[in-house]
Amino acid sequence: MTDRPFIRRLRRTHSEAAALFYLAICAVLLVWALVATMGDDSGESMAGVIPLLATAPGSLVVLALPDDPLWFIAAVALGAEVNAAVIGWCARALGRGDGPGPAS
């Protein structure tokens, strides 16, 4: 089985510590929001807003999806993955030192 360039790039991006730390924070926020929402009998919990904002702009697609907890989880997971890929790419670029050279 050949290793596809997209999968290789995704694996390399998610191997950065900053991206893994971000994904862990998003997972904790998502679990907290689900527990807080299930524990609220009034149905007026706003706990779901926190993971949505933490994974925006990718997770804001949930506004167009049907009102279902599975769609909410999928939108937050998708937003977290996209943002983690961007964070990993930025961390790699900063680590390489691809910035402009010193001014002469």
Rank of each mutant, 00 (worst) to 15 (best):
T2N: 14
D3H: 12
D3V: 13
R4F: 13
P5H: 09
R8D: 15
L10Y: 11
R11C: 03
R12P: 00
H14N: 13
H14P: 00
S15G: 15
E16I: 01
A17C: 04
A17F: 10
A17N: 08
L20F: 02
L20G: 09
I25S: 09
A27D: 04
L30M: 12
V31M: 08
V31G: 07
A33F: 00
L34C: 11
L34E: 08
V35M: 14
V35H: 05
A36K: 06
A36P: 01
T37V: 09
M38R: 10
M38W: 10
G39D: 06
D41T: 15
S42K: 05
S42N: 08
S42Q: 08
G43K: 03
G43Q: 07
G43C: 10
G43T: 09
S45A: 09
A47N: 00
A47V: 02
G48Y: 01
V49Q: 05
V49M: 12
V49A: 10
I50M: 06
P51S: 08
L53V: 15
A54S: 13
T55H: 07
A56F: 11
G58I: 03
S59K: 08
L60T: 02
L60E: 01
L60Y: 03
V62N: 12
V62W: 15
L63Y: 10
A64N: 08
A64D: 08
L65A: 14
D68P: 02
L70S: 10
L70N: 10
W71V: 07
I73T: 10
I73A: 15
A74G: 13
V76L: 11
V76K: 08
G79W: 01
V82L: 15
N83P: 00
N83G: 06
A84P: 00
V86F: 05
I87Q: 02
G88T: 00
C90Q: 12
A93L: 11
A93H: 04
A93C: 04
R96T: 04
D98K: 05
P100R: 13
A103K: 09
